[in-house]
């Protein structure tokens, strides 16, 4: 028999192996999408939160979370909660390191005034801070396209949100 604390840890471990469909080098735990786990016997309730209103991956994430936990728990319930809204501040240090290792700059410093933006701290490839925005919108809702002026490589940037 495993203790309740063990089963909660099991659930988190399994969730940690669920990749984000659009950023597959990080998990839904790394991104802060999986918010809460509650275990009651053989029943687990996972609370997840959408990143952007238009994120088309939400249904897939829900499906993947179910599939990952189904072998360990008899009943898997996935709850979607909107509030408080997801923020990139919830990306874990491990998530940020994994993003950088896969060539994606993690969210940088957010500048407050409405019409100014945020910027990546450094190029994920060479570490140079001399970077410029190519486009505020990228291949997925959460990313922008930037370029490094030192190594000249373009890179994806997870926008501070």
């Amino acid at each position: 028999m495993s203790s309740p604390r063990d089963t909660v840890r099991d659930a988190w471990d399994l969730l940690g192996q669920v990749p984000d469909p659009e950023l597959p080098t990080v998990s839904v735990v790394d991104l802060g999408i999986a918010r809460e786990v509650a275990v009651d016997g053989q029943r687990v309730v996972v609370t997840i939160t959408p990143t952007y209103s238009g994120c088309p991956a939400m249904r897939e994430i829900e499906h993947d979370v179910r599939a990952a936990l189904a072998g360990r728990f008899a009943v898997v319930e996935v709850r979607i909660v909107l509030s408080p809204p997801w923020t990139t501040d919830w990306i874990t240090p491990q998530g940020r390191a994994r993003l950088t290792r896969s060539g994606i700059a993690p969210p940088g410093v957010r500048l407050l005034p409405l019409l100014t933006g945020d910027r990546p701290a450094a190029c994920p490839r060479c570490g140079s801070a001399t970077v410029e925005e190519l486009s505020g919108f990228g291949s997925t809702a959460c990313k922008a396209l930037w370029r490094c002026l030192a190594c000249r490589e373009p890179f994806d940037y997870v926008k501070a949100h």
Binding site: P50, Y52, S53, G54, C55, P56, L134, S135, G136, F137, G138, S139, A141, L145
Partner: peptide
């Protein structure tokens, strides 16, 4: 870039 930007904005607004 603008094609992608407009599609992204459309997705957000559609989600709302």
């Amino acid at each position: 870039e603008e094609d992608i930007a407009l599609a992204n904005v459309a997705l957000d607004v559609l989600g709302q």
